[in-house]
Structure formats: structure tokens, C-alpha cells
Design a protein around this nucleic acid. Sequence first.
DNA 1: CGTCATGGCGTTACTTTATAACATGACATC
DNA 2: GATGTCATGTTATAAAGTAACGCCATGACG
Lengths: 166, 166
Amino acid sequence: MGKHGAEEGREAGTAQRRRLDQAAELCAKRGQTLTPLRRRVFEIVLAADRPLGAYDVMEILARDRGRVAPPTVYRSLDFLVSQGLVHKVLSVNGFVACSASARPHDAQLFICGSCGSSVEVAKKSHAGLIEEEAAALDFAIESVVLEVHGRCHACRLATANPTVHP
Amino acid sequence: MGKHGAEEGREAGTAQRRRLDQAAELCAKRGQTLTPLRRRVFEIVLAADRPLGAYDVMEILARDRGRVAPPTVYRSLDFLVSQGLVHKVLSVNGFVACSASARPHDAQLFICGSCGSSVEVAKKSHAGLIEEEAAALDFAIESVVLEVHGRCHACRLATANPTVHP
DNA sequence: CGTCATGGCGTTACTTTATAACATGACATC
DNA sequence: GATGTCATGTTATAAAGTAACGCCATGACG
Ligand SMILES: [Zn+2]
Ligand SMILES: [Zn+2]
Ligand SMILES: [Zn+2]
Ligand SMILES: [Zn+2]
């Protein structure tokens, strides 16, 4: 993925530290462990303001721990996804922290093609409609990928202002 | 992608030939050309009973034309997608023929994890809901990815039969 | 205590998917 | 016949993801 802006903060704020602790607790409740590596990967994803590619995470990890191989980071990311802490964003081959963090669910994401930011909204209404359609097909739903692409509010405002330099 | 079953029929039936001719006409109307290569690629995708990977298409193409390089097939597939004749299926890295073939649109696909088949349904109702949510975020939608995973009718019936390939 | 199963991680090597960059050919237009 | 364009060929490489094996810490069990 692309270069970084202010996205990958080395030190998490208090809010994020609490998120991490909550996550650890959540995993523990399920008999799973948020190991130091997994915790650090989650921290990295949390600190980003947009979906990060697995190789981005690798690169950031490398600053702490030296070279890390792809399987290491993929395993951690997959774990976090399995715990519902992180969502995989297919349309950008990336991973983004779940903004709800309740329990595992399919995310609905609005992804900006300009700045790359993504916003998760609680999926509600159309879930019902999709289920209806599935029922009509006698199709047993296991998961739903719903990713909306376009331009976010901030980027639309920026476009109106021609004062941005290339 | 996986190995093939009865999916990649060398000779198209009459129905498919008509689809191809319609497609050619459609492209022409837009000042675009369905060249022999593009036509053949479309034919291959049409003949498949499930999404094909670009490299699957390459392999099938190779039977006719000898070795074909990735850019060749990706370009043709991208063209077909741009014409709305084919949909890209992100969640399986594949390409499937549009079953409506009207004009370009975002597809809603039901994809079976057992047999790999995919069914396209006309997206209607929830489009409105997504638009509402987008409006609330002041987000300008450009495209929507909606892929539902699960088990299709046929595979659910076959559940007793362990003869379905994993 | 030993030993055995387990889970998490490291490492190597590899596969699959996709694109950049540049060259060629065909055909239109001036 | 030069110039532009579009589609395709070609080479090389990037980007994303996985298989397979082995190590070590932990904890159960005799
Ligand atoms: Zn979420
Ligand atoms: Zn934006
Ligand atoms: Zn369609
Ligand atoms: Zn099926």
C-alpha cells in the first residue's frame, strides 16, 4: 500500500490503550490470548487512519522487532479478524480496526478513493433485505462483504477548494 | 483458481453466440470494439459456471492461441468489466459474466463456498438504504461491492452426500 | 521428574494475483 | 508517407498470500 501520513503513531493514546486492554480481556473470555505480537499488530492497525496492507504492517513491525516474515503478520491479522477486532477490506487488500469491537460481525465500510480513509457503519436494515433475497434463493448466508467506494466529506470539500498544491 | 469441472465449454451454444453478438453490438454503440480476443475472453467467462480467475482464463486461451501473457488477459477482462459485461468478484479474485448485461452496474452476488457458483441478483432495495447512509455521511458513492457468501440451494441438498468437493 | 501434546511464532521457499514499461502491428488521417 | 491511436505482444517485476517445517514455552499427565 501507499506511503504513510500521520497514520501509524508509535505510541498509542489512552483511548487506544484501553481498547487494547478491552481486546485482551475479550480474547481471554473466549479462551484466546492476545499475545504481545498480536497486541502490537492490533495497536498498529488501530493507530492507522485507514486500512493498512499486511506488508505495511510488516514494515512498521520491523521497526520494533527487526525483520518479520509475511506468515507472522498474516497469522496475527487473521487472528484479529477471527476475534472481530479487525476487518479485512477486500477492495483494497487491507485491514482496518473494527470501530464497534463488540463481537464478530460483517462490516459495512465506506471507503474514500482519494484519501483512503474508511468509515464503518453499523449494518442494520439491508441485512434484512439481503436475508430475504437469500431466503428466496434458499441460500444459507455465512458472511456478507459490503464495501462502498466513493469520496468522503473531507475530500469533497477539498475538491471545491482549488488551493491544494500537487 | 481451482481445477475445472464442466465449466469451460469450448463451443458456445446458440444462446451464448447471441449473447456475444449482442455484446459486440452494445460495444459498437458506445464506440468501442469487441475484438476477437475480447470476444473470446468473454466467451470463456460466459461458458464457465462460476467465477474464473484471470490465470484460468489465460490457461484456456492458451489452448487456442498458445501462450498468452497476463497483461493480455487482464486488459481484456478489464475491458469487459468496463463495458459491464463481466463483474469482478473480489472475494474470490475472479471474473463472472454479468447475468443482466443491460448496462454497467454494481452486481450483488451470492457465492457458494462449496461449489463456487455465483448468482447475480438485481440490486434494488438496499441500494436506497446505502444511499441514505452515504448521504448522512456526505459521502459520494462511486461503486458498491456486495458479495454474499454461504451455501447454495444445491449444496445444501447435497449436504447428506459427502461427495461435494471441498 | 520425564514425556507428550499444544499453541504461538520463526523461517524458508513458494504460489497466486496483478501491473509497469516498452515494443510491435494495423489501420486511419492528414 | 508521416503521424496518431488503439489493441496487442513481451519482458520483467511488484504485491499479496500460503505451505511446510521446526523450535520452544507451557502445562497436563503418568
Ligand atoms: Zn466492525
Ligand atoms: Zn477522502
Ligand atoms: Zn450484472
Ligand atoms: Zn453450491
